[in-house]
């Protein structure tokens, strides 16, 4: 795999998407939501105003779970099938590039956009928090930003897989929406139902494994386990075995990035265009 080609494709992807007004609009919305959460995050406790990083992270985790996967899916769902429908893919693949290079280049380019959107949105909020409440627990906040990008990369990887297997853009859109609904909304309901149905017979190990099968849960736990206040107040310490450290959940997210990406490369290499 030639790094030169990867970078060229990534650069093109970045340049083309950067000028896409939808992406710019999403970045702005991201920033506004992050700032809003930082300010109104503790409203349920009857207080308004910017709180410390630990409290903000707890609120922003939920925002990330809703928004970051959506942005990533939106960025990646048409990366392959969209280019195929538009007619640019044939020309691109007729050049001296391998399909793996094209796919990885797209992944790198789109991940860069995702990184910048996330860093801009949360970074700006972070500055406001630091100015208002100090830099205590800043580490948790930085971990949260990094893992948000990682969560985005998971869904970007899924989006590219979807884009590689879909023959039509409309099917890729449907697939992207389905993936989002399943992982962000339905999966936890199923898990809850399973726990009720089995009357808690599932052991904590099995339960933790099931959580890792959902990248949004892995992301949530990765962040909340790092916050002592959340670990105790939410009872996570009793639910998640000691052996399942943050690293285990980070590893789960990494596997979630790699597996769909490899699947996408395999499918992409076999297809006719």
């Amino acid at each position: 795999m030639a790094i030169r080609i990867l970078l060229r494709v990534a650069e093109k992807e970045f340049l083309n998407a950067r000028r896409d007004t939808r992406i710019i609009a999403i970045s702005i919305i991201f920033t506004l939501l992050a700032l809003g959460i930082a300010y109104f995050g503790s409203a349920p406790t009857g207080m308004l105003g910017v709180r410390g990083f630990d409290v903000t992270v707890a609120s922003l985790v939920s925002l990330s779970i809703f928004i970051v996967p959506l942005v990533a899916l939106l960025l990646g769902y048409d990366a392959i099938v969209g280019e195929d429908e538009m007619g640019t893919l044939g020309l691109l693949l007729s050049f001296p590039v391998t399909r793996a290079e094209v796919l990885m280049g797209k992944f790198i380019g789109l991940s860069t956009i995702l990184f910048l959107s996330t860093a801009m949105g949360y970074g700006l909020a972070g500055i406001v928090i630091a100015l208002a409440a100090g830099i205590e627990e800043l580490g948790s906040y930085l971990v949260f930003i990094a893992t948000s990008v990682l969560l985005g990369m998971v869904f970007l990887s899924l989006a590219l897989f979807l884009s590689a297997i879909s023959g039509q853009k409309s099917r890729a859109v449907f697939g992207a929406i389905s993936i989002w609904i399943f992982f962000v909304i339905i999966y936890d309901l199923i898990l809850l139902g399973l726990m009720i149905f089995t009357k808690g017979a599932l052991g904590t190990k099995v339960f933790s494994l099931l959580l890792m099968l959902n990248p949004t849960d892995a992301f949530r736990l990765l962040n909340l386990l790092g916050l002592e206040v959340m670990r105790t107040s939410l009872g996570l310490a009793t639910l998640i075995p000691e052996a399942y450290s943050s690293m285990v959940f980070a590893l789960a997210l990494a596997v979630w990035v790699i597996a769909p990406l490899l699947g996408a490369i395999v499918v992409f290499r076999k297809r006719d265009y």
């Binding site: 060229r8 093109k12 083309n16 998407a17 007619g87 044939g90 007729s94 050049f95 001296p96």
Partner: peptide, 29 residues
């Protein structure tokens, strides 16, 4: 493929790039 130049039927390009950027991208590839 380095020795081949190909013009597909209904050729299309990345809409947000200029002609120069397009040519630069493919030259680098």
């Amino acid at each position: 493929r380095r020795k081949i130049g190909y013009l597909p039927e209904n050729v299309a390009f990345y809409e947000n790039l200029t002609a120069s950027e397009t040519l630069r991208f493919f030259a680098r590839l």
